[in-house]
Simulated scan of single mutants.
Amino acid sequence: MRVEIWSDIACPWCYVGKARFEKALAGFAHRDAVEVVHRSFELDPNRAEDDVEPVLTLLTRRYGMSQEQAEAGEDRLGAQAAAEGLDYRARGRDHGSTFAMHRLLHFAKEQGRQSELLDALYRANFAEDRSVYAEGAERLVELAAAAGLDAGAARAVLADPDAYADAVRADEREAAELGATGVPFFVLDRAYGVSGAQPVEVFAQALEQAWGERAPLLRPVGQDEAQACGPDGCAVPQN
């Protein structure tokens, strides 16, 4: 069974939702038969790479919040993250373009290190003091290396603005076709969609339901007793 997760590094609910989904998956009896694929979704796709601003400023400007409301919202998010065992820095974070990070995640997928890089990017964005936006490509190269990727190869990807750009845009188009207007967005075997950072119990239920209702690879047609050959030989005509 395949689970596809559309998310953005700048999305705090994606950070929390990934942890909740993984708890559900850890308790799923068929977890070793589940392939998890992370797909790209930018919350701010038109933001320039050098356009970086504090998260609290973004909240007050975009959503018309007061400073106190923005701070209270960040505190509540921090409590939700803490409940899942995640660190969360509610003050001093910034916001910027995530396009380069998504390109790097597609490279990491080819190397079998996608989930590790995503975790490293989430930790850096939500829990660490240093910025994943303001410090430029070398900060991302450092995180890629920490996730087990070759630093030189990661640097080459980031230096080429076209590298994996089409893959990012294809993911985003597909999200729109599936009706996703926000993230996280989980798609189970292209049969079930789960929106948002749902409780662990909801993800567990979705996994069980999707597994139980999977269509067989082939649907039998005809008679079960029709002549055929097998490990014990071939059926001999009786008439």
Rank of each mutant, 00 (worst) to 15 (best):
V194E: 10
V202A: 15
A180Q: 04
V168S: 14
Y192I: 13
E172I: 11
D166A: 14
V168I: 07
V202N: 10
L178V: 09
F186P: 04
A176H: 01
V202K: 11
L188C: 11
D166H: 09
A165Y: 13
Q198G: 12
E177Q: 13
A204Y: 03
A175G: 11
A176R: 10
A170I: 01
A170F: 02
A175Q: 02
A204I: 13
Y164I: 09
R173A: 03
G196C: 00
G196Q: 08
R190W: 03
R169H: 08
L178W: 14
A165M: 04
F185V: 04
A204F: 14
V168W: 06
Q198L: 08
A175W: 08
G179P: 13
L178Y: 15
A176I: 02
V183R: 00
D166Q: 06
V194A: 12
E177T: 07
F186V: 09
V187E: 01
D166Y: 04
A197D: 05
P184S: 12
V183S: 01
E201T: 10
A204W: 15
S195Q: 15
D166M: 05
A170N: 08
L178E: 09
R190G: 07
P184K: 01
R169L: 05
S195K: 15
A163Q: 09
A176C: 01
E172A: 12
A165G: 09
E201L: 03
V194H: 13
A191S: 14
A163F: 12
A165V: 03
R190A: 07
V194K: 03
A180S: 14
V200G: 06
V168L: 02
E201P: 06
A163H: 11
A170R: 13
P199W: 03
A191P: 06
E174F: 04
G182Y: 13
G182A: 15
L178M: 15
V194T: 09
V194P: 08
D171R: 02
V200F: 06
A170V: 01
R190H: 11
G182V: 13
R173M: 00
